[in-house]
Amino acid sequence: MNDMRLLQRTQGMNDIKIQANGVDVFYADNHAIKDVSVEIEDKTVTAFIGPSGCGKSTFLRCLNRMNDTIDICKVTGDILLDGEDIYDPKVDPVQLRAKVGMVFQKPNPFPKSIYDNVAYGPRIHGLAKNKAELDEIIEKSLRRGAIWDEVKDRLKQPGTGLSGGQQQRLCIARAIATEPEVLLMDEPCSALDPIATAQVEELIDELKQNYSVVIVTHSMQQAARVSQKTAFFHLGSLVEYGETGKIFTNPEDSRTESYITGRIG
């Protein structure tokens, strides 16, 4: 353990934010994730890539216990956030998810106004003492979500009325508003057109200055563009994990190479 830390320090890397050790996930009898161990760094964009059904999204959802909402799903192994086991019985998933926010594949704004969408998190977590503070948080979040200029004049209009790309950026702003430490993104651009995708990618790049961002993507180009670290999943196993540049140019595992060069997946 100590050696590892040392190694990473010497490489000039950030602190480890999330550490997973020997994680297995079962859906009823289906063994979806097989013995995955990974370390995710702070202030870094980490990409999970791999063919469809390889378990990358499932693993992502383990990181903020979203799988709890599925009855038949069972998770074993340790996942530590800042050294604390998030599957400890004493942990309230609600508190965990306030620290580890999530953005989903399809933009899912609530059927409320844009303002109320962003205010939702701060309100339930009691982050604002008064209206002025809440207004401030919302403006800040929308600015950081790179959508403030587009919506500042229509905050009272429903969030569902925005375009797909705007909706997704609204959802990101909504996730940021709760001031999470980690942001999980499950294929955030798969439902967007290229222009909207570019906007969101630019945003992700900005976000990494403050957050640890984990992004699942099926687009290798996207992973190469936005991430510093990349993990390649195949058939439920973590095949290779390392610097993005190294994975894409000089993979160690033959399966990674096959996937990168388009022979599998």
Binding site: L96, I124, C171, R174
Partner: peptide
């Protein structure tokens, strides 16, 4: 009501009743 809305809310750390 689509599950995506519930997921969105849980993802922000809301409890089930919220």
């Amino acid at each position: 009501v689509p599950q995506a809305l519930r997921d969105g809310s849980y993802g922000l750390g809301a409890t089930q009743s919220e």
